[in-house]
Design a protein around this nucleic acid. Structure first.
Length: 308
DNA sequence: ATCCAGGTACCCA
DNA sequence: TGGGTACATGGA
């Protein structure tokens, strides 16, 4: 059992929020303690203020996995600066919507997840809620992952999944996503270097490559870019973020989507312009605060009654 | 019971 | 290029 003391430039850090916010689905909580698997290692970690107590990984890997070297206070400052530039007010502009979300989410850290696990996880995520996704992934690991002792399992490799028939993968509550899982696993078997190649691509090329995988569209690709490749300017747009952004920032509506629903890129591009190079972090703060925000999902219908 | 959830593929104009 | 729809599952 080891300890790690967070320095002032590594705070705020909220372990619970970080592991519960829907970026990773393999950690289990028992009281204050979290148990998970990182790179086939059984890991435990708990937090008491600025002290992390952990086991199963070394300090360098802990820092790397949780991106502890990233200064979150600076990130929030940079987001504020971008908002100010966008708003044309470099002195006193204050975005209370963002500040409220950041107050809720500031201890959240985007972790450095393994691309393969992240890819499979978010293929499983589509059109599902977080408890369902978690259950699905734990079934997949239990059935096809390497046993690591006391009901713990590694994440199955591409080969582990590629050799399964679609109907077998369906027994993991994956539904129609089963064909995407085997298809993506087979794609990786045919292109064994693709995931490391993507790490060196531009964002545009990386996204294009990811979307060649069966079952990977813009949203899943963006989640992998943000949560595994740590491209912090990327903004995955799910139904929550769509509702939040269109409700809180009506200026997202432009000529193209004034009388209809904004497209995926309308929302993602607005966020990138508005929140800047850490838009993905801003997005995570809003996602973390999604339950607290009182939002109407009917804003589009309300507007569409009005003449141009 | 109904609606909805960290969406995508496919079809059609 | 953009809009409509089927798709499986389980939580609230």
């Amino acid at each position: 059992m080891k300890t790690y003391r967070l320095g002032t430039d590594q705070l705020p850090f909220d372990l619970d929020l970080t592991l519960e916010c829907g970026q990773v689905f393999r950690w289990q909580r028992t009281g204050n303690q979290w148990n998970g698997i990182v790179a086939e290692n059984v890991v435990m970690i708990s937090q008491d203020g600025e002290i992390l107590t952990y086991d199963g990984m070394n300090e360098a890997d802990l820092v790397r996995y949780f991106n502890l070297d990233l200064n979150v206070q600076e990130i929030i400052s940079k987001i504020r600066a971008s908002i100010a530039v966008y708003s044309g007010d470099t002195e006193s502009h204050n975005d209370l919507q963002f500040e409220a979300a950041a107050a809720t989410g500031s201890g959240l850290r985007i972790i450095r997840q393994e691309p393969w696990e992240c890819l499979i996880s978010f293929i499983c995520s589509q059109n599902s809620n977080i408890p369902t996704i978690t259950k699905r992934i734990s079934l997949i690991c239990e059935r096809y992952g390497r046993p690591l002792g006391k009901k713990r399992f590694g994440f199955p490799s591409p080969a582990d999944l590629a050799e399964r028939e679609e109907m077998e993968l369906r027994t993991c509550s994956t539904g129609y996503r089963a064909s995407y899982l085997s298809g993506t696993a087979q794609y990786i078997i045919r292109n064994p270097d693709i995931l490391s190649h993507i790490a060196n691509c531009s964002i545009e090329d990386a996204k294009r490559e990811l979307m060649k995988f069966p079952g990977v569209g813009p949203k899943v690709a963006d989640c992998v870019l943000l949560f595994a490749y740590n491209r912090y300017e990327v903004v995955p747009v799910d139904v929550w973020i769509r509702t939040i952004i269109t409700s809180l920032y009506p200026e997202v509506r432009n000529r193209r989507c004034n009388r209809k629903e904004c497209s995926y890129n309308d929302i993602a591009n607005f966020c990138r312009e508005y929140f800047g190079s850490f838009a993905g972090y801003a997005q995570q703060y809003f996602f973390a605060a999604r339950q607290d925000l009182s939002l109407s999902k009917d804003h589009i219908d309300e507007r569409s009654d009005q003449p141009l």
